[in-house]
């Protein structure tokens, strides 16, 4: 079975009922998608399949021929964060960080679908299948709305950067 992951062609050796989550994590070492429940209920394993957010734990290899898969690893890296990533960081929308990759991908797809600013209730509906046990939902909503409007708070307080000795 052949499909594209983050722009690169992949031929899997896994059996037809193996999940995409397994292929990503164990074959490709792409561990951004998390095995939170492996029942489709928590959203932590969400990736984009042909641009649409899907549960990689419910998607088996047998249905992936020719598909294009995008994981959190392709959204942006440390030096080139996407708007959604910047917003999640600036709004402290990641607490323990376990649900964050799935949230980021669902939010990215929502903003692309809408092609412009999104309202809070649209975010609630689109991200409703994503579980944040740290209950940081308000900040997640803030971040997605801000990202859809292209709003940036700007750099974090420089004094704080000095204290921490890190650059975002």
């Amino acid at each position: 079975m052949k499909f594209v992951v983050n722009g690169a062609q992949h031929t899997t050796v896994a059996g037809p009922l193996t999940t995409l989550l397994y292929v990503l994590r164990e074959e490709l070492g792409l561990v951004g998608a998390k095995a939170g429940c492996q029942h489709g209920s928590c959203g932590a394993c969400t990736v984009l399949i042909d641009g649409e957010p899907r549960r990689s734990c419910l998607t088996v290899v047998a249905t992936l021929e020719g598909a294009e898969v995008t994981t959190v690893e392709a959204l942006g890296d440390r030096s080139h964060l996407s708007d959604v990533q910047v917003a999640f960081n600036e709004h402290y929308a990641a607490q323990c960080g376990f649900c964050t990759p799935g949230m980021l991908l669902a939010a990215t797809a929502l903003i692309k679908r809408k092609g412009g600013p999104v309202e809070r209730d649209e975010v609630v509906e689109a991200l409703g299948g994503h579980y944040c046990r740290c209950t940081g939902y308000v900040r997640i909503l803030d971040a997605v709305v801000a990202a859809s409007r292209g709003e940036r708070l700007g750099a974090m307080a420089p004094s704080a950067l000095e204290i921490r000795g890190v650059a975002p």
């Binding site: 999940t19 489709g40 419910l58 998607t59 088996v60």
Partner: peptide
């Protein structure tokens, strides 16, 4: 029968 996989896949995985 595997259609969407939302029912069958978790059963197989577990």
């Amino acid at each position: 029968v595997l259609a969407g996989g939302t029912v069958v896949t978790p059963l197989v995985t577990h």
